[in-house]
């Protein structure tokens, strides 16, 4: 078992020399069944080729920075076990649908702008004074939004979304799911700030419910559900009499 290896084909791209990304093969020792793709990349970086660039931080599925295409599917590389691919080679490529900076590193500016545009924080018309005590919530009130609050901004859903791939103006899955997370929070009063952003032409209406965002999400968030529910809610606000309009 000590000599078992796995072939990792990693995308390489140097903006100063390359026109197109290319794949480079590395033989990585596979000595432990619990090894993940990120371990293999770290082995390459430390022992074979120090020039390989990629993002990572926590290696435990919390920071959301090691998302890449593993054999064509967006995955957190810290959560993609080599044993699921061996003895076939693993192809590691940068996340789909984003501009490439170098090797496996993508430009996430667009997502960061979109994230900020939906104001992902609790908005109050008037802050309660500290003396008033804590904002209390029932279990049911927490259940309303808890699922959507699990998002770690890893952008796998954007890489999986063909609509975003075809039109980068689309607000996208994670941003809409987070907008819904705050809109459903009983402590929040920011619906009127977020709704125009979410319900713009390039917002929820762009989505045609492919549903792949929810399939690839490593945290079990269901962005596709968030988007469709937001469509229905927004429509009802306008269709029902005395709806709470902007």
């Amino acid at each position: 078992m000590a000599d078992k290896t796995i072939t990792v084909r990693a995308a390489r791209f140097d903006p100063e020399h390359d026109k197109e990304p290319r794949l480079q093969s590395y033989e990585v020792p596979f000595y432990d069944e619990s090894m993940v793709v990120l371990d293999a990349l770290n082995h390459i970086k430390n022992h074979i080729d120090g020039s390989l660039s990629y993002r990572w931080s926590c290696r435990m599925g919390i920071c959301g920075s090691c998302g890449m295409m593993v054999n064509g599917t967006p995955k957190l590389t810290c959560n993609a076990f080599l044993r699921d691919y061996w003895p076939r080679p693993v192809v590691v490529q940068p996340l789909n649908n984003f501009p490439l900076i170098r090797d496996l590193v993508i430009d996430m500016d667009d997502f960061m702008h979109k994230l900020k545009s939906i104001k992902p924080w609790i908005i109050r018309k008037q802050e309660l004074p500290l003396g008033a005590g804590e904002h209390r919530q029932t279990n049911e009130q927490i259940d309303d939004f808890r699922q959507f609050s699990e998002c770690i901004n890893c952008m796998l859903c954007y890489a999986a979304c063909p609509i975003y791939g075809l039109n980068e103006e689309f607000l996208g899955p994670a941003a809409t799911a987070l907008a819904r997370r705050y809109n459903l929070d009983s402590r929040d009063e920011g619906l009127k700030d977020r709704l125009p952003v979410v319900a713009e032409a390039e917002g929820i209406w762009e989505c045609s419910f492919v549903g792949e965002c929810s399939v690839v999400c490593p945290k079990g968030v269901d962005p596709a559900k968030a988007i469709q529910q937001t469509k229905l809610d927004t429509t009802m606000r306008f269709v029902l009499p005395y709806g709470n309009r902007e």
Binding site: S117, L195, P196, V197, A199, E200, A201, G203, W205, T234, T235, F238, E246
Partner: peptide, 8 residues
Amino acid sequence: PRTAIDHL
């Protein structure tokens, strides 16, 4: 940004 009534 403005809610797109047409798309709605």
